[in-house]
Amino acid sequence: MNGMIWIIIFGAAATYLTRIGGHLVLSRFDHVHPRVQAGLNAVPAAVLTTLVAPALIDAGPAEWSAIIFAAFVGLRAKLTGMFFASAVLLIVLRQIGFN
């Protein structure tokens, strides 16, 4: 078995741990400190930002246009509409050589 398979297996174990862990651990406390709660709530936004921000720095006008367009679409549409609308714009811009 190669390294990637092991990463997937450990990733799966870590995921199962998050799905069973809340019940096993958090349910034992009847009170979670509000600052801990605030930190936990911040995890998804914080992690996602680190995956987007540096990629934007390295990107060009086509990618920036797609992101700005996505933000506008997102005011009305949900994730699926937002993603596919901006993905289509990116593909069109790449095809016409705008980058």
């Binding site: 990733g11 870590a14 998050t18 936990l40």
Partner: peptide
């Protein structure tokens, strides 16, 4: 490194901890 990928997967899935705490009972 592999452990950092596993840690990142864990971090993204961390929200499930809140689900499991809420639905468990």
């Amino acid at each position: 490194p592999g452990w950092l990928i596993v840690l990142s997967i864990f971090a993204v899935n961390f929200r499930h901890i809140l689900y499991s705490a809420a639905i468990g009972p």
